[in-house]
Simulated assay, not measured.
Amino acid sequence: MTTEQQIANLQASVDRLTNAVTSLCQHQGTRLSKQQLADRLKVHRNTLNNMLDRDRRMPRPGSDGKFLLADVIAWEAYGRQQ
C-alpha cells in the first residue's frame, strides 16, 4: 500500500468517525453554553462574539442561547475559518 493510499484510508476513517460523533450528538441533542463553547475553542467569550460576527458558517445559538454540539463538531471538522 502506498503512502497516498494510507493517507486516503486514514482520512476516510476520520470522516467516518466525525460523522458518527455528529450523528450521536444530534440524537442526544447535547447543547453548549456560550462559555462552554468559548472554553472548547480556547477563546474568551468576547472573542467568541467577534468570531460569530466574522464567520457566517459558524453555528448559531438556538432560542435557548445554546449551541448544538453536533453543529459545533461539524463546523470544527469541515467549515472553521482559520
Rank of each mutant, 00 (worst) to 15 (best):
residue 29 G to R: 02
residue 20 A to E: 14
residue 30 T to K: 14
residue 6 Q to C: 02
residue 45 R to F: 00
residue 14 V to Q: 04
residue 63 S to L: 03
residue 22 T to A: 15
residue 27 H to Y: 10
residue 44 H to A: 10
residue 15 D to M: 05
residue 40 R to E: 10
residue 6 Q to M: 04
residue 3 T to F: 13
residue 14 V to E: 05
residue 64 D to W: 00
residue 34 K to S: 15
residue 66 K to T: 14
residue 64 D to Y: 00
residue 39 D to I: 00
residue 62 G to K: 06
residue 43 V to S: 12
residue 37 L to Q: 01
residue 49 N to Y: 01
residue 28 Q to D: 15
residue 73 I to V: 15
residue 57 R to Y: 01
residue 56 R to Q: 02
residue 80 R to G: 12
residue 26 Q to E: 15
residue 14 V to W: 03
residue 43 V to P: 00
residue 45 R to E: 11
residue 72 V to L: 07
residue 71 D to N: 07
residue 7 I to Q: 10
residue 39 D to W: 06
residue 7 I to S: 10
residue 25 C to I: 13
residue 60 R to W: 00
residue 46 N to C: 02
residue 66 K to M: 12
residue 46 N to T: 07
residue 66 K to R: 11
residue 26 Q to P: 15
residue 71 D to H: 03
residue 48 L to S: 12
residue 2 T to D: 08
residue 79 G to I: 11
residue 47 T to N: 14
residue 41 L to N: 06
residue 2 T to M: 09
residue 19 N to A: 15
residue 69 L to C: 06
residue 71 D to V: 09
residue 61 P to A: 13
residue 35 Q to T: 12
residue 57 R to A: 13
residue 57 R to M: 15
residue 16 R to Y: 05
residue 51 M to Y: 06
residue 41 L to V: 10
residue 53 D to M: 07
residue 53 D to F: 00
residue 19 N to H: 12
residue 38 A to Q: 07
residue 50 N to F: 00
residue 68 L to H: 05
residue 3 T to E: 01
residue 34 K to L: 12
residue 3 T to H: 10
residue 35 Q to I: 07
residue 12 A to F: 06
residue 41 L to C: 07
residue 11 Q to C: 04
residue 37 L to P: 04
residue 19 N to S: 13
residue 24 L to E: 15
residue 14 V to K: 05
residue 13 S to V: 11
residue 32 L to N: 07
residue 63 S to W: 00
residue 72 V to Y: 05
residue 76 E to T: 06
residue 60 R to T: 04
residue 18 T to C: 14
residue 5 Q to M: 07
residue 39 D to L: 01
residue 63 S to Q: 06
residue 57 R to D: 07
residue 70 A to K: 02
residue 68 L to T: 04
residue 56 R to T: 09
residue 54 R to H: 12
residue 21 V to Q: 09
residue 30 T to F: 13
residue 47 T to K: 04
residue 27 H to D: 11
residue 66 K to D: 09
residue 47 T to C: 03
residue 47 T to D: 13
residue 58 M to S: 02
residue 72 V to H: 02
residue 67 F to V: 14
residue 50 N to A: 14
residue 52 L to P: 01
residue 3 T to K: 04
residue 69 L to M: 11
residue 10 L to H: 08
residue 27 H to S: 12
residue 33 S to G: 11
residue 73 I to P: 03
residue 40 R to I: 02
residue 70 A to L: 12
residue 37 L to T: 03
residue 82 Q to V: 13
residue 30 T to P: 12
residue 69 L to T: 13
residue 72 V to T: 08
residue 80 R to K: 10
residue 76 E to W: 05
residue 4 E to I: 05
residue 45 R to A: 12
residue 8 A to K: 15
residue 3 T to S: 07
residue 21 V to W: 01
residue 19 N to Y: 04
residue 33 S to P: 01
residue 32 L to W: 14
residue 60 R to E: 09
residue 59 P to Y: 00
residue 57 R to F: 01
residue 48 L to N: 06
residue 32 L to E: 04
residue 47 T to I: 02
residue 54 R to I: 09
residue 28 Q to I: 12
residue 46 N to A: 09
residue 69 L to S: 15
residue 2 T to R: 11
residue 56 R to N: 00
residue 8 A to L: 11
residue 74 A to P: 06
residue 14 V to R: 04
residue 20 A to N: 05
residue 66 K to I: 11
residue 43 V to Q: 10
residue 43 V to A: 07
residue 77 A to L: 06
residue 15 D to G: 02
residue 13 S to W: 05
residue 56 R to P: 09
residue 13 S to M: 13
residue 42 K to W: 03
residue 37 L to I: 04
